[in-house]
Design a protein around this nucleic acid. Structure first.
Lengths: 226, 226
DNA sequence: TTAATTTGTTAGATATATCTAACATTTTAA
DNA sequence: TTAAAATGTTAGATATATCTAACAAATTAA
């Protein structure tokens, strides 16, 4: 029987989806704007507006008219709990259920809303308490702790430094294909030769000593370390 | 991304829960009444009333004012598809994820609404295309076909016949405990000694030759064969 | 067989999550 | 630096799923 009697702290499925997106989109700059959220969630701005008022009442976000949306510690905890469930679900679908990486995202999007710590604890156990998902994204533990948060978007890396690609912040096929075309893979090191002040594009040298240019848009979606 | 854009044939999570209950509760007599459904789903009768009008429009049920609710072929197909997902999920949680039988029902209740045939086909494959769940309940195949539908409620069995208990139509702990107390188990044979016309209770002789009486209420929840 | 009880229905209210249209503010560009 | 464009908000409408209160029909019992 599915009794979703909402406890104080809990959120509806809709609220869960919003806080997850707020958290994800505010990662880079510390906040996110209404139109960005609306686009991501495929709703209109007024819908986001009213939902943000609601989440602000629950103290999950800080929200003042015409100002950006910021996640509170409470909201972050919620978001990390959902992200944990999503990433564990993805890894489970790939490693245990042998589904293809490209087909698991939509299923994980549904599984992440399953209300059962037993279910997720068993998955965690079966996977051997993994710290990262196959994209290199860290999996928060049951307390919301994330190992290793020193990763930065490639566009924020210093010039003339060698960095390791540890994750991508976008798993759309078109994006992954683009990276493949450029010969960029998670785990590989690249040398940051130059960052163009003009358009934010980045010139890299890959491990085969080939020089290549990536746009700002792409660079900010590649997470690197060191 | 969770896009639950409802296709013509699809039902909302709520509609799925209703048709599943309509199907389950109408199994015995061919129909179910509003108050029974309301009780099962923990809603008030007017809620059931309006949902039945909706499902009647979708041609999932036949529903005339003050008459019982009957499932159509279309509704049965929907119900069986959900039941298939529920039973596969339960078996998966028990056999693959090693969760206890008593704790999987609520999780399966959530998993059954996951929209992904790939997910369920993989579960089916991993379980070796099982035909029955651990309660002895048959699992419909991907086309809604159920193997072996000769099962009848114990109260409909003939007197002076030996029948095999193949399933129970209620998995509440209190009910299962009651059966245990009576020494009745799935897979065991019992002799139907007498059916009381007065109150519908049934007198059985179990395999240890012990005579015992069960009420009509209990008898109609025990499914037997032969 | 009629009165009481049970069961079912209708009407109208509420909460959630969404929309469109109209208006307000902020940002960008001429 | 002001006009245009972009972005955000408010007000009010819609759909779903629920409720309560009042009434209607069917069933049961006196």
């Amino acid at each position: 029987m599915l009794f979703l009697i909402e406890n104080e702290g809990m959120g509806s499925l809709t609220e869960e989806n919003y806080i997850k997106s707020v958290y994800a989109l505010s990662q880079a700059t510390g906040e996110v704007i209404v139109s960005e959220l609306a686009k991501k969630l495929h709703v209109k701005p007024p819908t986001v507006n009213s939902m943000m008022k609601k989440l602000a009442l629950k103290k999950w976000v800080l929200y003042a008219p015409y100002k950006g949306i910021k996640v509170t510690e409470k909201g972050k905890k919620e978001a990390l709990s959902i992200i944990r469930r999503h990433r564990l679900a993805e890894l489970f679908l790939v490693n245990v259920m042998k589904l293809g990486w490209e087909e698991v995202h939509d299923i994980a999007e549904q599984l992440e809303h399953v209300e059962s710590s037993r279910f997720y604890d068993r998955i965690d156990e079966m996977l051997g308490y993994p710290k990262f998902d196959p994209h290199g994204e860290p999996i928060p533990d049951a307390n919301g702790k994330i190992l290793n948060d020193k990763r930065i978007p490639l566009n924020q890396a210093k010039e003339n430094a060698t960095v390791k690609i540890v994750a991508v912040a976008d798993d759309k096929k078109s994006f992954l294909d683009h990276l493949n075309d450029k010969g960029l893979k998670i785990g590989e090191k690249v040398f940051v030769k130059r960052k163009e002040a003009y358009d934010g594009s980045v010139v890299l040298v890959n491990k085969s000593k080939v020089e290549l240019m990536i746009t700002h848009q792409v660079a900010e979606r590649i997470l690197v370390e060191e």
